[in-house]
Nucleic acid binder design. Structure first.
Lengths: 151, 151
DNA sequence: TATTGTTATACTCTATAACTATA
DNA sequence: TATAGTTATAGAGTATAACAATA
């Protein structure tokens, strides 16, 4: 474990932050994932539904970029959601290479059903941190997530 | 996207922190995972090797708890590492239900070969944050990861 | 009875590369 | 030529439950 790495201080510090970040995310994801699993959804699937719910119809490419999921995977995720009647694909007339993905009524109802409990889970999990700490965590993570996509 | 959630402030704040945490971890994991992939290793596999390298031989159960990986998965991860001659299993004489997992010389050499570049990747990625910010991030994430295992 | 680990089941995720259709 | 999406490939992850061996 990097925690026991005895090298120089700046390396130890970065490794330590990284492993704690990873663990936190894993623990939180495990918790939130249980609720989703009760509804037969994976994180990628729910993330897709959530994006469509809050941002409206999008191409597969846009969803993939939002969720950091590769093209081939998006095809599969959308396929699985489509099989269950939660989303639909519609060709974009102006650019027939694209599909616009939209929630069906059933998909919308499912998100509406799950989201409150999902959000409450996250509020509960984050509740160990004060409002200021949550904001600070968000800012630090935002910097990490942004910088590293460009660099 | 929770970012566009228009509910109450505390919910928006928690969701926002959560999504940024998730994105950061995903971006970082993607980056560090590329190096590991060059050596034919997944994160779980390298995490196992790393734990054995820095903490010494451990039972599968202990590794699973460190890495937050379930029992059945640990069997598979260890199997795959064992096939490649990177780890070995030895029955524990005092409790013959357990296997002690150890690095082979080959496994130890592989970690020694990969770790410097892996650590440097993390130092580079975390480098967008100051030393104080990295420490702060670590503390916030530690609280998140710990609390939620107990609660 | 409880625990460690294995096995079986059944999906989902992951990346990549070759491919089709369209731009 | 470049882009959006599909398909094929090939593995690894995930959880669960039933099982064996041991405590």
């Amino acid at each position: 474990m990097p925690t026991h790495y005895t090298g120089d201080e700046s390396t130890r510090r970065a490794l330590d932050a990284y492993i704690k970040l990873s663990r936190a995310r894993k623990v939180l994801g495990h918790r939130t994932g249980q609720l989703l699993a009760d509804f037969g959804l994976t994180e990628s699937q729910f993330g897709t539904l959530e994006a469509l719910y809050f941002l409206g119809p999008m191409s597969q490419k846009d969803i993939g970029e939002k969720l950091l999921v590769s093209g081939g995977n998006m095809t599969m995720v959308i396929n699985n959601l489509e099989k269950r009647g939660l989303v639909t694909r519609q060709r974009v007339q102006e650019d027939r290479r694209q599909f616009m993905v939209s929630l069906t009524d059933r998909g919308r109802r499912l998100v509406a059903e799950i989201f409150p409990a999902h959000a409450q889970n996250i509020v509960d999990l984050m509740g160990i941190l004060s409002a200021e700490e949550q904001d600070h965590l968000g800012r630090l993570c935002k910097a990490l997530g942004r910088q590293t996509r460009e660099a």
